[in-house]
Amino acid sequence: MRSLTLLCLLFCLSLTVSFGQNTSEKIGYVDQQLIIERMPEFKKLNQEITLKSQQYEKVLKGKFDDYEAKSAALDKLVAGKAEQMILRDKALELDNLKKSYEEFEANAMKELREYYTKKFTPIKQKVNEAIVFAGRQKGYSFILRMDLNPDGGDMWPVVLFARDSTSNLSADIMKNLGIDSTAASARKIGIPQMLQQK
C-alpha cells in the first residue's frame, strides 16, 4: 500500500509539474530516519544517552532502596507505638527522600532531553544539508520524505527540498479565500529551505 501511495503521489506531482511548466521535473524521496540512524555521530549520541541513563538509574535505585528501607523502619516504629515526635521526624525524613527522588528523576529526564536535543540538532542539520546538496547536484526539483499519517491510513509526503519557490501556490489560495497574501512570499518553508544557497 505504501509503494502504491508513493507511486500515485509521484505520478500526480509529475503530471502537475509537467502540465504547469511543460518541463520534465525529477522527484525523489529519501528515508531520512535510516540515514540518521546510520550516522556515526547518531550512534555515538545514543551510546552517550544510554550511559547517562544507566548512571541516573543507579542513583535513582539507590534513592529508592533508601526510601524503601526507611519506610519499613517507620512502619516498625508505628507498630511499636514509638513517640509522636520520633514518628513525625521519621515521616518528615521519608517525605524529604521522596521529594529528593522525584526531583532527581525530573532533573535527570530534563537533562537527558536537553543533551539529546543539543547533540541531535547538528546531526539533523548535517543530514538536511546533504539532502539539499544531493537534490541540487542530481537536478531534482523535489525531494520527499514519506511519514506515517498520524491519523492512520496511508503514508504522506514531507517535502525536504524544493529547487525553487515558483511552485508555491499559497498567495493564490489566500487571494481566493480573501486573505491578505503580502507576507506569504517571504515565509521560509521547512528546515532545508532555511539553509543558505550553496
Rank of each mutant, 00 (worst) to 15 (best):
A69V: 04
D65A: 11
W156M: 11
D75K: 11
M146F: 05
D147P: 04
K119Q: 15
K126Q: 12
N149C: 13
I131M: 01
T117Y: 00
E103Q: 15
K90G: 00
K126F: 10
S71N: 03
N96A: 08
D154G: 11
S165R: 02
E129W: 10
W156R: 11
N176Y: 00
A134V: 06
Q125E: 12
K175A: 08
L177K: 04
Y140R: 01
K90P: 03
K70I: 00
F133G: 03
Y115P: 12
A82N: 04
Y115L: 13
Q137C: 01
M146P: 05
E93D: 14
A134N: 08
D75N: 12
A79D: 12
N128F: 10
L97R: 14
V132E: 05
L92R: 09
D172G: 10
N149M: 13
F64A: 09
K98N: 11
L148Y: 07
S170V: 10
V159M: 02
S167H: 08
I179Q: 01
K98L: 13
V78I: 13
D89T: 01
S167W: 06
K110R: 08
M109C: 05
L77F: 04
G153F: 10
E83G: 04
I179H: 02
E129K: 14
R88A: 13
L160Q: 06
I173Q: 09
R136P: 00
L74M: 08
Q125D: 15
A72F: 10
V127A: 14
I131V: 13
K99N: 09
M174L: 10
M174Y: 06
M155A: 07
F161I: 00
E129T: 12
K76D: 15
N149L: 15
Y115A: 12
L144N: 02
I143W: 02
R88C: 06
M146L: 07
Y101E: 10
E114K: 13
D66R: 10
L169A: 03
M85L: 14
Q125L: 13
R136E: 00
D147F: 09
E93Y: 08
D164L: 00
A69R: 02
F104D: 15
D65I: 06
K138V: 01
F142I: 05
S71R: 05
K118Q: 07
E129G: 10
S181L: 02
S170L: 09
K138Q: 06
S181T: 04
K70L: 06
A130G: 15
F104Y: 15
P150L: 14
K124M: 11
G80H: 06
L92N: 12
Y67A: 04
T117P: 00
F161P: 04
D147E: 14
N149P: 13
